[in-house]
């Protein structure tokens, strides 16, 4: 299982990559492995604002549907439209082409999320 050290993480298995005041959000390698084949992704409308912890997307695998939460407060400014036709990108490239959405955020909020080592401990205790 892969836990890139440059990313921040949540207890609910999202990852965040900060680019200025934009947070790129996806689900972790651990999460995609647990879900299995992803077959459908429901993304939020661009312009939606969300509190930290609010449900903003849904990832469906063959087995189950899983809510995706906003890791921090912010506004959705872009979604990964490639997932509409290729939801399997979440399995193939969870930290790359399988990203879910971008949010405009307060960068200080992202600093408070889990480090890779802390997230790995959370994931592997499950």
């Amino acid at each position: 299982m892969n836990y890139p050290s440059e990313l921040k993480y949540t207890q609910s298995h999202e990852w965040v990559r900060l680019e200025g005041d934009v947070a790129v959000v996806g689900i972790t390698d651990f999460a995609q492995d647990a879900l299995g084949d992803v077959v459908f992704v429901e993304l939020p409308p661009v312009g939606k604002t969300a509190e930290a912890g609010a449900t903003v997307a849904v990832v469906e695998s063959v087995k189950t549907a899983s809510d995706i939460y906003a890791p921090v407060a912010g506004e959705i400014i872009e979604v990964n439209s490639a997932l509409a036709d290729k939801p399997e990108l979440l399995n193939q490239s969870p930290y790359g082409e399988g990203w879910l959405f971008k949010m405009k955020v307060n960068p200080a909020d992202v600093a408070g999320l889990l480090s890779a080592a802390d997230y790995q401990a959370v994931a592997e205790s499950q």
Binding site: G36, D37, V39, V62, K63, N91
Partner: peptide, 9 residues
């Protein structure tokens, strides 16, 4: 066993 590799494959 629920799956060995992936349900789809």
């Amino acid at each position: 066993p629920i799956q060995y590799t992936s349900i789809t494959s």
